[in-house]
């Protein structure tokens, strides 16, 4: 009979203790970051969207080999006069539908001091159709903007 009341007391006590935990955190300040107004600062090694620097790239294909999902494709530039391949790139395309953001291409890129393909800190990046995921950088065309076959896609979501 006695332990019947003891169990009731024990059950009641632990229920109340559980409620006190939620009561204590009821008064603690909340930790939500309200995204559009407040934004978290991304750490220095953050692997965001990839950018590409047309001038420094020597079209050595190391990044193409390093990529696990083979989403990088490029074409070396050809000197119109001598019809020989020169150490520049004519166009460079990354298919962000397949990219793993794994930084293997950046590590494989031999260009000094700043790598020609590297991660930025940009994560606000939405695309509407699959075609928009093919980001293409052309060196020959006058426009320096990275153009996709369609609308420019660098607009935040």
């Amino acid at each position: 009979m006695l332990n019947y009341f003891k169990t009731i007391y024990k059950v009641g006590k632990s229920l109340i203790q559980g409620m006190l935990v939620t009561w204590k955190s009821f008064w603690q300040p909340s930790i939500t970051v309200q995204f559009p107004d407040e934004k978290l600062i991304t750490p220095e090694r953050f692997r965001g969207a990839l950018t590409f620097d047309k001038e420094t790239c020597t079209a050595c294909n190391l990044c193409v080999k390093a990529c696990p999902t083979a989403c990088i494709s490029l074409e070396p530039a050809v000197d119109p006069a001598t019809k020989k391949r020169i150490a520049k790139v004519s166009w460079y395309q990354i298919d962000f539908g397949k990219c793993n953001y794994c930084r293997l291409c950046e590590e494989a890129c031999p260009t000094k001091p700043i790598k020609s393909v590297r991660h930025t800190h940009q994560y606000e990046w939405g695309m509407l159709e699959r075609k928009e995921m093919f980001v293409k950088w052309e060196r020959m065309s006058p426009s320096t903007e990275p153009s996709t076959s369609g609308s420019t896609n660098m607009k935040p979501i």
Binding site: L15, Q17, V21, T22
Partner: peptide, 8 residues
């Protein structure tokens, strides 16, 4: 307190 010892 919240879950492990909670009788329910």
């Amino acid at each position: 307190t919240l879950l492990t010892e909670n009788p329910i």
